[in-house]
Design a protein around this nucleic acid. Structure first.
Lengths: 116, 116
DNA sequence: GTAATATATGAACAAGTATTCATATATTGA
DNA sequence: TCAATATATGAATACTTGTTCATATATTAC
């Protein structure tokens, strides 16, 4: 199949790409992770939680918006495995799931020349 | 302002969070980057380009879909600074912008226990 | 049990986005 | 210049997603 002028090299790369594409379920999972951190409101929450564990209303105070909206956003982040929650009395305390989250944020900031 | 029981500690974290939130423009830019890599079709393209430079029709062959759809997706990735393009004769060859892209994918795969 | 506080959630609407189809542009070779 | 190939793009539609509003659940103190 003659697709472009770069026969040998590109065909080899293309075959390699086809063989090494992650499974559809893995692609979906990865997309889900990135989607969950691709909304400004949710990113703000992550930057807030980077400073430490917070309850919902303190997150609201830190990032703005309504309690309901923040709660919906937290649910999405939790479902994606980005944040975790634990109850303590009346409050539910949220924190980042693991160090990967901060690492990804830092990489992206570096990519964009933002301070971190 | 008495928001929750964790007065001292959470208030301190919250104040820190408010002081260190990135500027709105930075948040928007970060969200844009993540949004651009949060669609399965675009993620597949990135995994393909991870193997090396490819022309559009080879990308189409590697990841599936129509030429038009892939071209639209490439435009989004390019606008977000995730991929770059150069013309060579009739073809336009796409490749990943920089090493950060692969690094982010790898971190996310690690996070999900996918092989990379 | 009742009131107060903290958090979550369902439904509806609004906003954003992906894909398709048709077509446009650009490059090459005759 | 014309035909062929590779890539891009505008408009329309369908899909997805975020936010709001009202209300539900859970915990604590009385």
């Amino acid at each position: 199949m003659q697709i472009c002028d770069h026969a040998a090299e590109h065909t080899a790369t293309c075959d390699l790409a086809k063989r090494n594409l992650p499974a559809p379920s893995e692609i979906e999972a990865l997309a889900g992770v990135f989607k969950s951190i691709s909304e400004p409101a949710r990113l703000k929450i992550l930057f807030a939680l980077r400073q430490g564990e917070l309850c919902v209303l303190h997150i609201v105070e830190a990032v703005g918006g309504t309690q309901s909206a923040v709660s919906h956003q937290l649910r999405i982040l939790k479902a994606a495995g980005i944040v975790k929650a634990r109850r303590e009395g009346q409050n539910i305390l949220y924190s980042l799931s693991d160090a990967h989250v901060v690492a990804v944020l830092e990489l992206a900031c570096t990519h964009l020349n933002c301070k971190f």
